[in-house]
Nucleic acid binder design. Sequence first.
DNA 1: GGGATTCTGTTATAAATTTCACAAGTTAGG
DNA 2: CCTAACTTGTGAAATTTATAACAGAATCCC
Lengths: 214, 214
Amino acid sequence: MAVKSEHIPKATIARLATYIQVLSEFKREGTDVVSSERLAEACSVNSSQIRKDLAYFGEFGVRGVGYYVQDLITSIKRSLGIDRAWNCALVGVGNLGRALLRHREFSRKGFIIRGAFDCDPYKIGEVVEGMEIVCSRQLPAKVKELSLEIGVITTPPERAQRAANYLVGAGIKGIINFAPARIAVPKHIHLEYVDFFHYFYAAAFHIRFDDNRD
Amino acid sequence: MAVKSEHIPKATIARLATYIQVLSEFKREGTDVVSSERLAEACSVNSSQIRKDLAYFGEFGVRGVGYYVQDLITSIKRSLGIDRAWNCALVGVGNLGRALLRHREFSRKGFIIRGAFDCDPYKIGEVVEGMEIVCSRQLPAKVKELSLEIGVITTPPERAQRAANYLVGAGIKGIINFAPARIAVPKHIHLEYVDFFHYFYAAAFHIRFDDNRD
DNA sequence: GGGATTCTGTTATAAATTTCACAAGTTAGG
DNA sequence: CCTAACTTGTGAAATTTATAACAGAATCCC
Ligand SMILES: NC(=O)c1ccc[n+]([C@@H]2O[C@H](COP(=O)([O-])OP(=O)(O)OC[C@H]3O[C@@H](n4cnc5c(N)ncnc54)[C@H](O)[C@@H]3O)[C@@H](O)[C@H]2O)c1
Ligand SMILES: NC(=O)c1ccc[n+]([C@@H]2O[C@H](COP(=O)([O-])OP(=O)(O)OC[C@H]3O[C@@H](n4cnc5c(N)ncnc54)[C@H](O)[C@@H]3O)[C@@H](O)[C@H]2O)c1
């Protein structure tokens, strides 16, 4: 059992990702032990928050001492389910899809893009970063053959639903959708939307209207 | 005055971005009027949530009728401060930076990348999507000359702080950081972190541990 | 060895956010 | 003109999330 608690807030998951990032940095710097207070400062959160977030999954620290950096990284990774590799399918090999394919960090962090799919006949057969682009129709076969579990959608928005349908039909377990379109999937499929514009809108809003406040 | 209320939840801003996306889709389909109930369903949220989110900014609907799609899009855009163009500086023209530069949607939505900066002498002078890559040292001059307000960091993580320093020194007002590194900026600078791994981690976690729940 | 100090895990408290419930405004139809 | 059917905007209630406070455990130093 990886969790002690029933429901984990979405915000906690997001923060755990940040903790891993910052802890990895501490590790590179040669820091062996860190207190929740010090980690909190580096992550711009409250130290109770960190202890609370971790408490959802177990007891990873030592009272009077703090957290052993390497151990905590390992514990958080196990808690998140990223203590093993995940095979991913990339659907839509355009500008963004190529950037993702070429990004070494994904496989280093355990998310391995093992299949790249597109429907454009001019792209099929092309090799990007050692990976041959295959026709989307081969999704069912490839998902099975390569045990692909996570589908990454980087098609134009009007094609996102179709891509999702292929992925779901092929037996994928979760989808990360980079296209700015809402899609419908059966509720046992986990779905994450990544919309860059959220961040640009938030920046614009705060720059424009925060002047007097804050 | 764009807001009625003092503080707007971060989650509200994110949802408003979704509302715009879905409303634009309705508009394309030729729908003129929409109820909060119908919009809520398309956005997978509660209809009270929508009415509450909008209430932070004003009264945009008509009782007994609903919301006029085009009017609501306009109102939300004004509320978010995206009823005008924002000039952006892209720092780090690698895989991801290029994908962003080539993405037409940014300028269509009012975020215009007017300067592309890199420190690699082999890249300086190269033209990507009609934009000449300039040396990062020219940031102060260009930010002033082109009225750049938002800085987009797509450098490797270990260079993100330096890129941020350049941007802040040059007088930028907000930063969107795509590099997986925490950075420090003066508190009048608005900072958004975009970390793709958040989404991958969340997907992995839910796929692995949600089976019995939900 | 013991007292001071540090720091976690957890309970209690506070704050924020979401959902509910309904008065009030709108339209349509007879 | 009046009733029935809708739908918004909003205060109150419920829920969720974050912060504070502190008992319990470990270390250090004399
Ligand atoms: N490029 C960016 O920086 C960026 C930023 C934010 C969001 N996005 C979003 O990401 C998505 C991809 O953007 P892009 O710039 O890479 O677009 P793109 O047009 O360069 O690439 C889209 C690719 O998807 C393929 N495709 C279309 N339908 C398909 C289908 N049914 N099955 C498989 N492949 C299919 C196309 O052949 C093409 O290769 C878009 O939805 C875009 O809005 C992109
Ligand atoms: N490529 C992806 O799909 C992807 C996905 C998620 C996150 N990221 C993150 O985005 C960032 C960029 O990724 P990438 O794949 O484009 O890397 P990349 O190495 O292809 O590009 C980085 C660019 O930044 C430039 N650079 C380095 N230091 C600079 C400085 N001080 N000033 C200006 N330019 C500088 C480099 O010359 C290079 O052109 C990284 O931090 C990466 O972790 C990338």
